[in-house]
């Protein structure tokens, strides 16, 4: 196993009735790297995340995470391997409280009988409180998630991922729909949480991208158009033409 990369995506292809949303895509992510994927609408950004986390089945190619082939695994197995995914629209359990939302993401009691026997002990409570503080929701633990603002729901979902403590965190437009103030707060939060794990982020906000990215991959029509540091990518004439130019 090649120790240099935590995630190796090779020749990844998915075809929907002949349309190749992702077309022989390859990229490699190093440990502790923050990779940002940008690209125009329909470039296949979200599909790439869907393929890695098992939501969409790939037509061909391979996705190897820490030496394990993810394409052969079920979604929950991929999660247990250490991959966490945040969706574009905030996906939280609206009928449950913030505390319960975080509790369900706590990595224990994942089987049917484990869930029946699961007890809220002090370790669980302490961990939930800790995470709630990180995401600025410690004052609203008993509130139903339905009553949170859009930004708070985004935070809550990020908190649900943090409590899983994944080695690879995938975030789909984490600052979309947030106010400027919220945006700053979340950039701080993200900068803190990406310190000790690998992250793949999809984002449109260039200021935000420049702020967090180790490296940037530009997707266009399911293929890599350009890859490298923010500076390099921004000055790549191909990129300017299809994406940054307008």
């Amino acid at each position: 196993m090649d120790e240099r990369f935590i995630l190796k995506v090779e020749d990844l292809t998915v075809s929907f009735d002949g349309f190749k949303a992702v077309d022989h895509l390859s990229f490699y992510v190093e440990p502790n790297e923050c990779r940002v994927i940008i690209g125009p609408n329909g470039a296949g950004k979200t599909t790439v995340l869907d393929l890695i986390c098992g939501r969409t089945k790939a037509t061909e190619g391979s996705v190897v995470f820490k030496g394990k082939e993810l394409l052969a695994m079920r979604e929950d197995q991929i999660v247990h391997a250490g991959v966490g995914r945040k969706f574009q629209t905030p996906s939280v359990y609206e009928d449950l409280t913030v505390f319960e939302n975080l509790e369900l993401s706590y990595p224990k009691g994942h089987g049917v009988f484990g869930a029946l026997a699961f007890k809220r002990d002090e370790t669980v409570r302490a961990r939930i409180k800790e995470i709630a503080q990180t995401i600025f929701l410690d004052g609203q633990l008993d509130e139903k998630a339905a009553f949170l603002s859009h930004g708070q729901k985004q935070w809550l979902e990020i908190g649900m991922l943090l409590i899983q403590d994944p080695e690879l965190l995938m975030l789909d437009e984490p600052v979309a729909g947030m106010s400027v103030a919220e945006r700053k707060k979340i950039a701080e939060l993200l900068n803190r949480i990406i310190q000790d794990r690998s992250v793949i982020v999809i984002e449109h906000d260039m200021g935000f991208v420049a702020d967090i990215a180790t490296r940037v991959t530009v997707l266009h029509q399911g293929k890599t158009l350009s890859e490298g540091t923010m500076d390099r990518v921004q000055n790549d004439p191909k990129v300017v033409e299809v994406y940054l130019g307008h």
Binding site: R74, V79, H80, L104, P107
Partner: peptide, 28 residues
């Protein structure tokens, strides 16, 4: 009242989120 009960409600509302929190939804 068990965690399984809360998971059921979670599954009813956001099945994908439950799946990507590491649960095998079908078993539940």
């Amino acid at each position: 009242k068990s965690k399984l009960g809360r998971l059921l409600i979670a599954m009813r509302d956001q099945e994908d989120r439950v799946r990507f929190s590491g649960y095998n939804v079908a078993n539940f």
